[in-house]
Simulated scan of single mutants.
Amino acid sequence: MTAHSAISAQIFDEDAQRIFAGAYPDVPVKLHHGLAGHPLLAIEALAGLADRMPAASVEYNLGKLPLGVRPEDTPANGLSLGETIRTIESNGSWAVLKNVERDAAYGALLDAALAELAPIVDARTGAMLNREAFIFLSSPDSVTPFHMDPEHNILLQIMGEKVMTVFPAGDEELVPAVQSEAFHAGGHRNLHWQEHFRERGTAVRLLPGDAIHVPVKAPHFVENGAGVSVSLSVTWRSERSVAESELHGLNALLRRRGLPIGRIGAQPERQGARRIAYRIMRKLGV
């Protein structure tokens, strides 16, 4: 299959684009897409992709995990990645293929999806930066623990069923400021879970053809259904997300020195003076 033939159909139709425009960048929202059943996203095609990917671009483990789990406590499944994908229906595992856009055909798929949304994004948060794609494969009843991600993200459900429970970004009981600061300094995405958090989340059921927009750093967890699940995540950064990261970095530097930290506003890209201060402090090694 050529990259051109792989992207001939519309991925996000006019209705999906309208719904996305009403939510972006701060509100999670369910969308529809046209990639369910796409041959590049079939199990055997993904196993072949995994076989040619570098080890640093894959992550996989047993899939039946608690909602809160420390990264170092995540159990391996004892299989190779190719075996994990080809036997995903019965091996009780979870896997992610990272940065699949480095493969030409999958890169074309990412470009096609994001091109349909770029005018909306450009008008709200500026040009799409660092565009990436990830593919998630999950055995029946797998759980992706409570975590957050640094990118703007749309998760497209390709095969199977899952429920994603999404929480508001910026809630400091869910994610204390010091944890945000550590996260932007390279800390792990997994978050501390407490059962009473559940009432603050919104559970969204995803079937093939459904998608969900997840705002930057909106905490979430995912519970897979009774069948194999395949999902494609298309992500990008923006001037806004980069600015937020810089401002958390500045607060971390100030906090370590016992100095007052600053508030990060709803439009951090406009806090230019503080961003410049952070860059200067980093350059000087302060």
Rank of each mutant, 00 (worst) to 15 (best):
A9I: 01
M164D: 07
E83P: 00
R18N: 02
A169D: 06
P39A: 11
L62V: 12
S238M: 06
P140W: 06
V204L: 14
I158R: 10
I88T: 11
L46Y: 05
A133H: 03
R240S: 12
P54R: 14
R263L: 10
A243H: 02
I261R: 13
R275A: 09
T125W: 05
R198S: 11
E246D: 15
Q271G: 00
A218G: 13
V204E: 13
E59T: 09
R237S: 15
A203F: 04
H184G: 00
A169F: 05
P140R: 01
R257C: 13
A123R: 14
H33Y: 08
P140M: 04
A112F: 05
G37T: 05
G262E: 13
G209C: 11
V163P: 01
S5R: 04
Q157D: 03
A226N: 11
I261T: 15
L191P: 10
D13S: 02
H184E: 00
A113Q: 03
L114K: 01
P215Q: 11
H147T: 04
A203T: 12
M1A: 13
E195K: 07
R102C: 00
I7Y: 03
T165H: 04
P268A: 00
A6M: 09
K64Q: 15
H220A: 14
A133N: 04
F183N: 03
N91E: 07
Q179H: 14
A113C: 13
R198M: 09
L284E: 04
D26G: 15
Y24L: 07
F221V: 06
G160F: 10
G160M: 08
V228F: 01
L110A: 09
L232Q: 06
S241F: 00
P54V: 04
G22V: 10
L31E: 02
T84H: 02
A105G: 04
G34Y: 13
I212M: 08
P145S: 11
E83I: 11
R198K: 14
G82E: 04
A36W: 06
E173Y: 01
V178P: 00
S238I: 12
G209Q: 12
I264K: 05
V166W: 10
V228T: 15
A133Y: 00
L232N: 09
L174M: 01
L174T: 03
R274K: 09
P71S: 15
S233F: 07
L110S: 05
H192E: 08
V58I: 08
G187W: 00
A105Y: 02
S238Y: 02
L114R: 05
P145L: 13
H248G: 02
R240D: 11
S180W: 02
L114F: 08
Q194D: 06
G225Y: 07
G209P: 02
R270K: 11
P208Q: 03
A104E: 11
I85R: 03
A123S: 13
H32R: 15
V222P: 02
F221C: 13
E181G: 07
A226M: 10
T125Q: 09
M53Y: 06
A133I: 01
E223I: 07
N153W: 00
E72V: 08
G126I: 01
V175N: 03
E151W: 12
R282W: 10
I276G: 11
S90H: 14
R198D: 07
R52M: 10
P208G: 12
P219K: 08
P219Y: 06
Q267T: 10
S57G: 15
R263T: 08
A36H: 10
A211I: 12
L250W: 07
S238T: 11
F20C: 02
I43F: 04
